[in-house]
């Protein structure tokens, strides 16, 4: 099985360099997948719900809109859904703490594997400024799409996928259609 040492092994020589994908320092994908599956399964068993990531961003946006223009959220079911019934702080929510944990977990894993580094993820032929613009545009589409689909990759694809949800699988198939269809047009960004 997976050795503890192997999980946290430190490979100086193949740390991610800009424009160069390294693979050796990542452990076997199937074992990682198994572990991710176990994390997901534990969430089901302990909480009776799946993982979700985009909820926090939605809460942040809803709270911000509510602060700036309360009349906007008053008549908008979408915002209201994230503000709750007003009895407690909208951020005092399962998904918020879940994602905070993920941030910490990612940092720990990155630190131990020596992958924590201020850098920009892009292909060698692409400028940083353009990459930031693309990241923003992609993020916007993602945010819009995730809300339209009532969930993101974690919420719909992973969670819905494991529950064999019809919506989850329909969503997942379309994510791949969209991404593979678009890939050709933004290839300069990555390769």
């Amino acid at each position: 099985m997976l050795k503890f040492k192997e999980w946290f092994s430190h490979h100086h020589e193949d740390n991610a360099m800009e424009g160069h994908i390294t693979q050796k320092h990542y452990t076997n994908p199937y074992l990682i997948g198994l572990l991710l599956g176990i994390v997901l399964l534990s969430t089901f068993l302990i909480m009776g719900r799946g993982l979700g990531a985009s909820g926090v961003l939605s809460t942040a946006v809803s709270v911000a809109v509510d602060k700036v223009a309360p009349s906007q959220t008053e008549n908008n079911d979408f915002y209201k859904g994230y503000l709750g019934d007003g009895t407690k702080n909208p951020f005092k929510d399962w998904l918020t703490f879940n994602i905070l944990g993920a941030v910490l977990g990612g940092f720990i894993s990155g630190a131990i594997s020596g992958r924590n580094k201020l850098m920009v993820e892009k292909g060698p032929r692409f400028s940083k400024g353009k990459r930031f613009l693309y990241a923003f545009i992609g993020g916007s589409l993602m945010g819009f799409g995730a809300k339209m689909a009532r969930g993101c990759t974690s919420g719909q694809a992973l969670t819905g996928g494991a529950m064999l949800s019809v919506g989850g699988w329909a969503f997942m198939i379309m994510v791949f259609v969209g991404a593979y269809g678009m890939a050709y047009f933004v290839r300069r960004q990555w390769t």
């Binding site: 209201k80 859904g81 503000l83 929510d93 998904l95 995730a146 009532r150 974690s154």
Partner: peptide, 12 residues
């Protein structure tokens, strides 16, 4: 006292 009566959604 209940305001909008909407429970915070469970999904993401």
């Amino acid at each position: 006292k209940k305001t909008t009566g909407k429970k915070k959604r469970e999904g993401c």
